[in-house]
Design a protein around this nucleic acid. Structure first.
Length: 440
RNA sequence: GCCCUCAUCGUCUAGCGGCUAGGACGGGGCCCUCUCAAGGCCCAAACAGGGGUUCGAUUCCCCUUGAGGGCGCCA
């Protein structure tokens, strides 16, 4: 039996968390969970002396938000640590000495070079199949300032951490021949490589970069996206369950994920599909969960709408948000959608007004509504519907003759929740006040 | 320039020699309906091109084209 799967995600603390990194992390995590293996988080912080701790926090926060917990790494330990490259100098020195002992290295201009072999290296990639590549020239393994470069520390870490599968972006494929040479020089067995296709930018040429719209995980967190929706979307970008399943929460993804399901070709990012996936999770959320999420989101928004909503009585806030949930694609739409619930000072949409005027006499209908609703039962949508029906019948008109002017008068718009829910949640006092104030 | 990878609707994908080429997002239409969403039904939309192999290619091979990546004392 092969030994336990050990995979790692090895980001550098750059101050942001790229969506491509997130997907690489996800694939590694899914493979570990699928196989009952170990998921290692390793921080590749070899060079910079900048404020790393703040940068590290971005990685930890994003990973936790996405639900990708690590079995070994910063904060949780493990017997192959330390897990930050900046703390592994002794290990690197030891292995660098072994490399030098092979006679394959030489000094030039203060740096240490590794002499390539003249054989092409074979990479038996779990996604690409057999790939052969020969390095073109000797490469630096230790800089003139004494610090080892990425290629060599990456290999030493994977070797000393017992990494069995290297799942990473295809941008590393060409460099893998260097890594294979280093593994061989150290007399170590190769890990299984799996180079996943890249995520291309939605518009324009090239892979997605940190400057592209929607490229950063923290942006989705900030915008109130459902993490599971983002994860679900990302999983489908480059991997397929092979049947037509689409909505799959993390646990199901872990159950179904496997290397053969990973695609070979690059995938273009699609914010529409992400938005749709987010809506699926939004619709499926319990009202309690949704209300809590909206509350948390509003706390981060420094707008008048957000402040008014948060200042409202909790029960009222809950009811308003519950009305919005089945109507929206994302939490960030809530403030605009619910604004008129939290202030009497809302504008009347002119297009909506024109439509209503074109269909009849809104001022008269609103007046009749106000009269009829003064004594109505506001307890349930059904009782309100009956009340409006009675008003319409009394004047020989239809329901919609009243619904549209009424909606305009109490909300200023022609879009929103069910008219009866609208009346019920606003309550008699607000409704009568707004109807009374209305001018066509 | 050299090297590596990839190629099915606009996009994400299913297909692993014989299919009316399936699903999803997006688009269009109809239904539902108090508006808007959601939901249901329907429509348009793809095998990059050229050679082979084969009784038969979307599927296998080659070339072209296109797309992406790598060629740092960055990671």
């Amino acid at each position: 039996m092969p030994s336990q799967v050990r995979v790692r995600f090895a980001p550098s603390p750059t101050g942001y968390f790229h969506i491509g990194s997130a997907r690489t992390a996800l694939f590694n995590w899914l493979y570990a969970r699928h196989t009952g293996g170990v998921f290692i988080l390793r921080i590749e912080d070899t060079d910079q002396a900048r404020n790393q701790d703040a940068f590290l926090q971005v990685i930890y926060d994003s990973m936790r938000w996405l639900g990708l917990d690590w079995d070994e790494g910063p904060g949780v330990g493990g017997k192959f640590g330390p897990y930050r490259q900046s703390e592994r100098g002794d290990i690197y020195r030891e292995y660098l000495d072994r490399l030098k002992a092979t006679g394959r290295t030489y000094e030039k201009e203060g740096a240490t070079y590794f002499r390539i072999s003249d054989e092409p290296q074979v990479i038996d990639d779990a996604i690409r199949g057999r790939v052969e590549r020969k390095e073109e020239k000797d490469f630096v393994i230790v800089r003139s300032d004494g610090s080892p470069v990425f290629h060599v520390v990456n290999v030493i870490d994977d070797l000393t951490m017992g990494v069995t599968h290297v799942i990473r972006g295809e941008d590393h494929l060409s460099n893998t021949s260097k890594h294979v040479e280093l593994f061989k020089a150290l007399g170590a067995p190769l890990p299984i490589y799996a180079h996943v296709p890249l995520i291309l930018k939605q518009n324009g040429p090239g892979k997605m970069s940190k400057r592209d719209q929607g490229a950063l995980v923290e942006e989705y967190q900030r915008r109130g996206f459902f993490a599971e929706a983002l994860v679900n979307f990302l999983a489908l970008l480059g991997w397929s369950p092979k049947d037509d399943s689409e909505k799959m929460p993390l646990a199901e993804l872990a159950r179904r994920f496997d290397l053969p399901g990973i695609n070979q070709s690059n995938a273009r990012f699609d914010d529409k599909k992400l938005a749709h996936m987010n809506m699926l999770y939004l619709l499926a959320a319990t009202p309690e969960d949704f209300v809590n999420r909206v509350g948390a989101y509003l706390l981060t928004q420094n707008t008048p709408e957000a402040k008014r909503a948060l200042a409202a009585p909790p029960d009222y806030f809950r009811e308003v948000v519950a009305l919005a949930q089945p109507k929206l694609k994302g939490i960030e739409e809530v403030p605009a959608y619910t604004a008129y619930f939290f202030t009497d000072d809302f504008a009347i949409d002119e297009k909506a007004r024109a439509k209503v005027i074109a269909k009849g006499d809104p001022a008269a209908r609103v007046r009749e509504l106000a009269e009829g609703l003064a004594q109505a039962d506001f307890a349930t949508d059904a009782s309100l519907e009956q009340a409006v029906q009675a008003i319409a019948a009394a004047h020989g008109l239809t329901l919609s003759d009243y619904v549209h002017p009424g909606r305009l008068a109490v909300s200023g718009t022609n879009v929103g929740p069910s008219f009866y829910s609208l009346l019920r949640v606003l309550g008699r006092d607000r409704v009568l006040a707004r109807l009374g104030k209305f001018k066509a």
